[in-house]
Amino acid sequence: MFEAFWWGALGASALLIGALIAYLLSPGRRVIAAVMALGAGLLIGSVSFELVEEAMKSGRVGWVALFLLLGAAVFAAGDWLLSRRGGGHRKDPSGAQAQGSPLAIVLGSVLDGVPESFVLGLTVLQGGVSLPLLAAVALSNLPEGMSSSSGLKAAGWPRGRVVVMWLVVVAVSGLAASAGYLVLDPAGGLVSALVQAFAAGALLAMLADTMLPEAYAVEGVLTGPVVVAGFAISVALSAI
C-alpha cells in the first residue's frame, strides 16, 4: 500500500514541478499546449493497453462498455458541478481563474488526478508499477501544473498558496493510488474488470473535456499529430 502511495504521489508531483516552472520561467502557451497534447496521447495509449485491454479479458464486453460510459458520466457530472461553482477555468493559462472559487479549483484538480492515480495503484498490485502509465501520468500532469499555475499567477495568486494547493493534490493522488491497491484485485474477475473500465471512462472524459480543448485552442491542427506522437511513445513503452 505504501509503495502505491509513493508512486501515486510521484506521478502527481509533476503538477508541483509544472507550477514552479510557471512561476520561475513563465513558459509560453504553445510550449504548454504541445506538452499537454503529448501527455494526452500517452494517456490514451495507457487507457487502451493498461485498462481496456485488461478489462476485455473478462469476456464481458457489454458490461465493460457500460462501465466505460458510467465512468465518463460520473467525471462529466463532477466537472459540470465544479464548473458551476467556479472551477471551470482551472487550466486556463490566461488568468480566468481570478473569477473562480479557490476551493472549486482545488477540487477540480483533484477530480482530474484521482482516476489516473487509482489505476497506478492497481498496476503496483499486479506486480510493479506500469512505466508507460507512470510516464503518461507525469507528462499529462506537467502541462496541467504549468497551465493552471500560469493562470493563477496572472490572477494574482502568490506562489506559496499555489504550492500548498498542489501539495494537497499530490497527497490526495497518493491516497487514490493506495485505494486502487487496496480495493482492486487483479484476480478479481468481473468486478476488477468493471472497475478498470470505469476508471478508463473517467480518464477518457477528462482528456476530452479538459486537456484536448486547451491544447487545440493553441496548437490548432498540429494537436492531432502531437497526440498521435504521444500514443506512439506509449506503444513503444508498452513493449518494454
Rank of each mutant, 00 (worst) to 15 (best):
A177P: 07
S234K: 07
G201M: 00
A197M: 02
R30E: 15
A76W: 00
A205Y: 01
A199D: 12
A215K: 04
L167P: 08
L111C: 04
K153Q: 11
S173L: 12
L25F: 10
F198A: 10
F2E: 13
G18S: 06
S147C: 10
L24A: 13
S192V: 06
A96R: 15
A98F: 03
S192H: 10
P132G: 08
F231D: 00
K91W: 06
I240E: 11
I233V: 15
A215V: 01
L69N: 01
A205M: 13
S48T: 15
R60Q: 06
P158Q: 06
A34E: 13
S26I: 09
P93S: 06
P158N: 05
I32C: 09
G78I: 14
G151F: 08
V64I: 12
A37D: 10
I240S: 11
P132I: 07
E3N: 03
V235D: 00
A14K: 00
L25G: 03
R30S: 13
G39W: 05
L120S: 09
L175V: 15
A202K: 03
M211D: 08
A37W: 08
A239D: 14
M1A: 12
L10R: 04
A179T: 02
A177S: 09
G113I: 01
Y216K: 14
L207R: 01
A200N: 02
G86F: 05
V183G: 03
M146S: 08
D185H: 00
L66A: 14
S109D: 11
V114A: 02
I44W: 00
A179S: 05
D79K: 05
G11L: 02
Y23V: 02
L10Q: 00
A138V: 11
T223R: 10
S148R: 06
S192K: 07
F75D: 01
V226K: 10
V163A: 13
G188R: 09
L66E: 00
L237D: 11
A12L: 07
S140M: 04
F198Q: 08
L122G: 06
A179F: 10
K153Y: 04
L152F: 03
F75W: 12
V228F: 12
L190C: 05
V110Q: 08
N141K: 11
V124Q: 05
L43D: 04
F67N: 08
L51K: 08
S94N: 14
V172P: 07
E54M: 08
V164N: 06
L131Q: 03
V64Y: 09
I233P: 03
L133H: 02
S101G: 05
A40R: 12
A40C: 06
Q97T: 15
S148Y: 04
S178L: 08
G11W: 02
A200C: 03
V35C: 10
G230W: 03
G59K: 12
A199W: 01
S13Q: 10
R60S: 07
S140N: 09
V52N: 00
A22D: 02
H89I: 11
I21A: 14
M165C: 04
Q97P: 08
L184A: 15
V61H: 13
N141F: 10
E116V: 05
S26A: 12
